[in-house]
C-alpha cells in the first residue's frame, strides 16, 4: 500500500522539479523485508522507496546495517533506521546529512528539502554564516532531536 497519497506525491514532485544533479539516498536497515526488520526500519525503507520514485534524478541504495558494516562506518551511521543523502554526480561526497528514524509528519519536509538542496546546490545561508563556517578548524556534529508531530 502506498504511504504517500496523490496530493503528497504531487507536492514532492513539485518540490524536486528543480533538481539538476543526481542525488543518492542510502538507507540502512537490517534483515530487509524479513520478520526481524524493525518496524520503523521497514516503514522508513518503504517511505524512501516511494520518495525515490518521484524524481528521475533520485536513486536509492538499501544497505544492511550488519552485513554492510563498512559502508555504515564510511557514512558515520551508528544506528538504524538511517537515511543518508549524497550528491551522486562524482563530486567529493559529503556524508554529513543524515536522518535517523522515520522522517514522517513534519520531518517529512526535512527529507524533501534535504533532497532538494543536495540536488540543486541551492543552500540558503547568510554571508555571515558562510564566513563563520570557513573559520571552523575542528569537526562539529549536530544532533537535532525531533518528534514526528
Amino acid at each position: 500500500m502506498p504511504l504517500l497519497d496523490d496530493r503528497v506525491r504531487k507536492q514532492v514532485q513539485d518540490a524536486l522539479a528543480g533538481i539538476t544533479r543526481p542525488v543518492k539516498i542510502v538507507m540502512f536497515t537490517q534483515g530487509e523485508g524479513g520478520a526481524i526488520e524493525c518496524e520503523y526500519c521497514s516503514e522508513t525503507r518503504e517511505l524512501v522507496e516511494e520518495v525515490s520514485q518521484q524524481s528521475g534524478k533520485l536513486s536509492l541504495e538499501v544497505l544492511d546495517f550488519q552485513a554492510d558494516e563498512a559502508r555504515a562506518r564510511e557514512y558515520g551511521v551508528d544506528k538504524i533506521p538511517a537515511v543518508v543523502l549524497l550528491a551522486g554526480d562524482g563530486e567529493p561526497a559529503r556524508h554529513g546529512v543524515r536522518l535517523y528514524g522515520i522522517p514522517a509528519g513534519y520531518e517529512f519536509s526535512s527529507l524533501v528539502e534535504g533532497l532538494r538542496m543536495v540536488g540543486t546546490g541551492d543552500v540558503k545561508l547568510s554571508d555571515a554564516t558562510r564566513q563563520a563556517l570557513a573559520r571552523l578548524t575542528k569537526p562539529v556534529h549536530l544532533q537535532v532531536f525531533v518528534t514526528p508531530t
Partner: peptide, 28 residues
C-alpha cells in the same frame, strides 16, 4: 532541522543528524 542540514552542506567539517526522539530512547 533543515538549518542544521544546510550547515552540513556548506561545510565539510559539519555533520548534522535528525534523530527521531521516540525511536531512540537510549539517546533521549
Amino acid at each position: 532541522m533543515v538549518l542544521a542540514h544546510k550547515l552540513a552542506l556548506a561545510s565539510d567539517l559539519v555533520s548534522a543528524d535528525m534523530v527521531e526522539a521516540t525511536e531512540f530512547p537510549h539517546l533521549t
